[in-house]
């Protein structure tokens, strides 16, 4: 089955990103396909490369990046939600006169249309959030 995944909460405060990651990984291992993973609301905070969680804890950003590499996943961070929360790629940083970009490898920033497109194209759109 072709699935779309929506992650609406940031890492650590809420479990949503952990559950979404585990669901996505399990679905891929069972042979399902993922059209796209879309990060919205505080979910965009999963896509910063600057998190430094304690070494004995999981690193959610790294887990997503590795999963994306292995399965060529499309990890999309909503641009409007990202701008509010300080998640920028090089182009966005330049456009808004900021001195750094922090988007993590394997993630890309794009518009909300990508979420609607996932709803249209995926057979099931699965949302993780509160």
């Amino acid at each position: 089955m072709l699935l779309g995944i929506v992650v609406n909460e940031g890492p650590y405060t809420h479990q949503a990103s952990d559950t979404a990651y585990q669901f996505t990984k399990a679905a891929l291992e069972k042979g399902h396909s993922i059209f796209r993973v879309f990060f919205y609301h505080d979910g965009v905070n999963n896509g910063t490369r600057l998190t430094v969680p304690p070494q004995d804890d999981r690193n959610l950003q790294k887990l997503w990046t590795e999963l994306a590499e292995k399965y060529k996943l499309d990890l999309v961070v909503c641009v409007a939600a990202a701008q509010r929360r300080g998640i920028l790629d090089a182009d966005e940083a330049k456009r808004h006169g900021k001195d750094a970009a922090n988007i993590a490898p394997g993630f890309r920033i794009s518009g909300l249309g990508q979420l609607i497109e996932a709803g249209i194209n995926a057979e099931r759109l699965v949302t993780f959030g509160d």
């Binding site: 919205y40 609301h41 409007a80 939600a81 909300l112 249309g113 609607i116 709803g119 249209i120």
Partner: peptide
């Protein structure tokens, strides 16, 4: 919380997709 405002933003963008 921001859920209501950002929901409305999805609705308005989504309107262009004629669903």
């Amino acid at each position: 919380t921001i859920y209501a405002l950002e929901s409305l933003e999805v609705v308005l963008i989504g309107a262009a997709f004629e669903q």
